[in-house]
Computed example of a mutant assay.
Amino acid sequence: MTGTAVLVSCAELPTGDGDDDVVVPALTSLGFSVSWAPWDSAFDFSSAEAVILRATWDYPARRAEFLSWCESVPSLFNSAAVVRWNTDKSYLVELLDAGLPVVPTSLVTPDSPASFPSSDFVVKPSVGAGSRGAARFTAGTDASAHVAALHAEGHTAMIQPYQSSVDTAGELALVYLGGIYSHAFSKGAMLGSTMDESGLYLAEELAPATPPADAVALAEDVLDAASALLGILRAELLYARVDVVRGADGKPLLLELELTEPSLGFSQTDAGAVTRFASAVRQQLA
Rank of each mutant, 00 (worst) to 15 (best):
A139N: 12
S68C: 05
S263V: 01
A278H: 09
E153A: 14
G272W: 08
F32S: 01
G192K: 11
E220N: 14
V281Y: 06
R246P: 11
A37L: 05
A50I: 08
G231D: 09
E153M: 13
V166H: 05
F32A: 06
D214W: 02
E258S: 09
E236P: 05
A280L: 01
V102R: 03
T194A: 15
A215Q: 12
V108A: 10
G179R: 11
L229Q: 14
G231A: 04
L67H: 07
T275M: 10
V34S: 07
A148K: 12
S90F: 00
D88N: 15
V147Q: 08
E71S: 13
P161C: 03
A48M: 10
E12C: 01
E204Y: 00
D142Y: 12
V102M: 03
V245N: 05
A50G: 10
P74F: 11
Q268G: 00
K124W: 09
A64F: 05
V108E: 02
S267V: 02
S9I: 02
S186D: 06
S118D: 15
R132Y: 05
L253E: 11
G133S: 08
D17F: 05
R84F: 02
P104H: 06
S115C: 11
T87C: 15
G18T: 03
P38Q: 03
T141S: 15
K251Y: 07
F121M: 03
E197L: 10
A169K: 10
A42M: 02
P125A: 04
L285F: 10
C70A: 12
L229H: 14
T210H: 13
T141M: 08
S118V: 13
E94W: 06
Y239T: 02
Q160T: 09
M158T: 05
S41F: 01
S75D: 14
L100S: 04
D111R: 11
T260F: 02
V82Y: 03
G192R: 12
M1H: 13
P262V: 03
Y59R: 02
S47H: 14
F277T: 02
S68H: 13
V216D: 04
L238A: 06
F45L: 13
R276Q: 14
L30F: 04
E220I: 02
V6L: 08
Q163V: 15
E261Q: 13
T168G: 01
F77G: 03
N86T: 05
L172H: 07
I159H: 05
S198L: 02
V34H: 05
R276M: 12
T105Q: 09
L285I: 12
G179E: 12
D40A: 14
W85G: 11
G178K: 00
S75G: 00
Y59A: 04
K124I: 04
G231W: 12
P211V: 03
A48D: 02
V244N: 06
T269N: 07
V222F: 06
G154D: 07
T194F: 07
W85Q: 12
A148Q: 14
Y59D: 06
H151I: 00
L218S: 04
L107W: 10
S119D: 12
S79R: 07
A273I: 01
